[in-house]
Amino acid sequence: MRLEILSKSTNESFARVVVAAFASQLDPTIEELSDIKTAVSEAVTNAIIHGYEYNEGIVIIESTIEGNRIEIVVEDKGKGIDDIKKAMEPFYTSKPDLERSGMGFTVMETFMDELIVESQLGNGTRVKMAKVFHSLVDKE
C-alpha cells in the first residue's frame, strides 16, 4: 500500500484511517488498531510540523504486511533532523512555543514493536515502524 498526501493537518486523520483499514485484514484487536493509528498519527504530524514546518510538501506512507507483521514507512522530503538521538528523547521538543509535548517518538516506540528513524539534513526523514499482531498468533 502506498499513499501520498499533502502536508496538511486535515490529512492526519485520513492517513491513520487508511493505514488502519489496510491493517484490519490482519484482524487486529481494538487495542492493536488503536496503537497503529496513534503511531501513524505521530509520524505524519512530525512530517507536517517539523519536516515541512507547515510549508507544502508531500508525505509518503507505505505499508506492507508479511504474515502477522505490518511494516509502515512514513517519509517526508523536508528539512531533516539534526540530532536524531535528541529528537527521540521523551519530552524533548524543538518547538516548545507550539505546546508540543515532545512525546511523538516515545509514543511510536511504545506502541510499535520496532522503530527506525533515518534522516539527513535538507533531505528529509524516513520513519520505519513495525508491529506484530499477536491476536493472529494466538488464534493459530
Partner: peptide, 13 residues
Amino acid sequence: NFMDSSGIGLIMG
C-alpha cells in the same frame, strides 16, 4: 475515540 501526543500537549498547556 482517538487521542495522540498532540492531545497530551494540549492538556499539559
